[in-house]
Simulated scan of single mutants.
Amino acid sequence: MNDSPEKRQMSESYNQIRVHFHVCPSQTCVEVHDALERLALLPGCVDYDLRYSQSNIFQWTITGVWSHAENRNRHYCSEQIQVLFRCLILQRASLICCSEGEMLHSKDLDA
């Protein structure tokens, strides 16, 4: 008899925005943080997070995690993502690189 919990593969979608600056950006940029908070409220958003590089103050990484690829794809047309990009440009972003993908992980099912 198998006493281990049954596992199911779960999938989450993500998008990542790498931002590079020639001039040191303001890490207290209220507009960027407000835009990220609004993005996190969109349907299907699990998390939207900004991380500052410890080794390079001229680089930020913004990651969004979504319950499904459809939710991730829908957010690309949202006003909130447009506001975020406008804020990054106002912060003098010199390069904005975007990527997306899927993360697979196992989840225990209740027996």
Score class of each variant (00 low, 15 high):
Q91A: 15
L50K: 04
E70N: 02
Q27C: 12
L109R: 12
R51M: 06
G101D: 15
R86T: 07
W66K: 04
N71V: 00
G64E: 03
L104G: 12
R18T: 03
I81G: 00
C24V: 15
I81Y: 01
A93R: 10
D108A: 13
Y76M: 04
F21R: 02
L39V: 10
V19G: 01
I62F: 01
A111V: 07
I17S: 03
C87F: 02
R72F: 00
H22C: 11
Q54N: 13
M1T: 10
I89S: 12
M10T: 13
P25M: 08
E79Y: 04
Q59E: 12
V32W: 06
M103S: 14
I17G: 01
Y48A: 03
L41D: 03
M10Y: 10
E79P: 10
A40W: 00
R18S: 05
R8Q: 07
D3M: 06
S78K: 08
R38M: 03
P5M: 15
E6H: 11
S78D: 09
T28M: 12
D34Q: 13
R92T: 06
S26V: 14
F21G: 00
R8C: 02
Y48Q: 05
I17V: 13
T63V: 15
P5H: 14
T28W: 09
E12K: 09
K7C: 04
G64S: 05
H22W: 07
Q91S: 14
Q9E: 12
S4P: 06
C29I: 10
W60Q: 05
I62S: 01
T63N: 04
T28R: 14
Y48E: 02
L104T: 14
N15G: 13
I17N: 01
F58M: 14
P43Y: 08
G44T: 08
K7Q: 05
C24S: 15
E12T: 06
P25K: 04
P5L: 15
H68K: 05
